[in-house]
């Protein structure tokens, strides 16, 4: 009985989170504060949140705390710097007359457990310099690397995954 009450409580929380996120997206998309637009927005976000709030739990999103938000913002800043670096890196390789590439496929390991965390890690690896994710299976990621610096599993993990994983590990702890 107690467990059931707990589930209901988290259901309501998920519903409120989802409703809030959807409503903010609606406001940004319409960029209008006319009362008719806002009423339609509330109505649509309410219906969508009613249908989807159970899936929100299945995604395995963690409970939100201040520390996690700070780490997530730091993670986004690191990601953004890496994206810019990635672009200049690939642009350099493409423009260089000798094409300085040394491509290869390596395996790296991750300690993250949740599917959503692994998805975020794989996506950020794809956005960083010279690496992208081919496949994930359990705790292994298959990575294509445009300029292989290390074939060893542990070393490759350190170079490719570590800078994101240390933030994600806190966020999804």
């Amino acid at each position: 009985m107690k467990e059931k009450a707990h589930v209901k409580n988290s259901d309501l929380k998920n519903f409120i989170y989802l409703f809030f996120i959807l409503f903010v997206i609606w406001l940004v998309l319409t960029t209008s504060f006319h009362w008719q637009e806002i009423i339609v927005g509330i109505f649509i976000s309410f219906i969508l949140a009613l249908y989807l709030h159970k899936n929100y739990l299945e995604l395995g999103l963690p409970k939100i705390t201040v520390k996690k938000i700070i780490y997530f913002i730091m993670y986004i800043i690191v990601l953004f710097i890496e994206v810019v670096k990635a672009n200049f890196d690939v642009a350099y390789r493409v423009l260089h007359p000798k094409l300085p590439i040394k491509p290869g496929i390596v395996i790296i390991k991750t300690k993250l457990k949740q599917d959503i965390a692994k998805t975020i890690l794989a996506n950020s690896i794809t956005l960083t310099p010279g690496t992208f994710t081919l496949d994930i299976e359990e705790d292994e990621l298959l990575i294509h690397w445009i300029y292989v610096r290390s074939e060893e599993e542990i070393e490759a993990t350190k170079i490719i995954g570590e800078k994101f994983e240390k933030y994600l590990r806190v966020v999804f702890a």
Binding site: K102, P103, G104, I105
Partner: peptide, 8 residues
Amino acid sequence: DRTVVDKS
């Protein structure tokens, strides 16, 4: 053929 390693 310039690939150096394939661990797949």
